[in-house]
Amino acid sequence: MDNLTHSLIGAALGQAGLKRKTGLAMPALIIAANLPDIDAPCVLYGVESLAMRRGITHGPIALVLLPLVLAGLLIAFDRWQARRGKRPEGRLPVHTGWLIALCYIGILTHPFFDWLNSYGIRLLEPFSHQWFYGDALFIVDPWILAMLGAGIWLSRRRERAGADQWRKPAKRALIGICAYVLLNMAITTGAFKGLRYDGPNVQVYNPVPIAFWRREVLWRDDGERYVIDRPEFFGAAQSSITDERHWSDYKDFGPTNMSDPRITEWSKSDPAAKAFLFWSRMPVAELHDDHIILRDQRFLGSPASGQFTVTLRKPNP
């Protein structure tokens, strides 16, 4: 998910009452909720960063060690302020156990919400390079942002007014998010059950922005053709060409071209292409005599498609 969503999740947990457990609880929750994204500067490497993102900093070793590092830094910061006489008077005493616990709570929300979209996450890195996908939420979900934003704002407003029940709006927002996530997981599961397909097709149920109840159905047939279907309702599509449904019924379809032997040969000397092929869940190729354009089916037609495109050229002899 986007970092604003991660930050609001941490803030909502704090406003639900966790911020009263120890000093620096709110910074711990918000920073920890974003902490796995310390791999973000790798985007400076361009397309090659696709092989680095959502990997080792999102895996089990990082999820164990990073909260301890963050808690240590926050404790050191608190003591540094105290020595300089600049520690805020209203700050609660820092409880080491609670601070570490909150760092773990915050950081564990990150891989869960990253897993929920179709971009994917390598949850077991460095022990396994396998990608995991939830296909349940769009990467920037306005409904989640609205619920979290409203819950935090109402909670803060009540707290400033001295109301006893100031935690309730944040708690309700978090309950609403849980219900919303479960609903979207059920929609994706319903899409799986509502579709018919023949053969070993790759299936992706791509969430779309705003219209959370809809899914783009991405699949391939045994003849190495790809299809992007946009049914009115998630259970109304079929994922195989039948007598009732033909290629002309689909707006976006075409050959994947991934069996072209030049792709394997040329990519050996192209780090960007190797990174792309490692990352891509559904690669498609546009073939030319002197170059090949690689794209990912999930992002065809998306404004962000340019970020996920590689031009593969024949190596110099």
Rank of each mutant, 00 (worst) to 15 (best):
L8F: 08
G17F: 15
L18N: 08
L18V: 10
R20K: 15
T22V: 04
T22Y: 02
A28V: 01
I38W: 07
A40N: 05
Y45P: 02
L73I: 15
D78K: 00
G90K: 15
R91G: 05
R91A: 12
G97V: 11
Y104S: 07
R122C: 08
F127Q: 11
L137R: 11
I144W: 01
G151E: 01
I152P: 02
L154C: 14
R158I: 06
E159S: 15
D164I: 06
R167A: 15
P169K: 06
I177G: 00
Y180F: 12
G190W: 11
G190C: 04
R196G: 14
W213P: 02
V217T: 07
V217F: 15
D222K: 08
F233A: 13
S239L: 10
E244M: 11
R245T: 12
R245Y: 13
D249L: 02
D252F: 09
D252G: 03
G254Y: 10
W266R: 13
W266N: 10
S267C: 05
D270P: 07
S280E: 00
P283S: 01
E286T: 09
H291L: 08
I293G: 06
L294C: 00
D296L: 14
D296V: 10
Q297F: 09
G301S: 06
G301Y: 02
V310W: 03
T311F: 03
N316C: 04
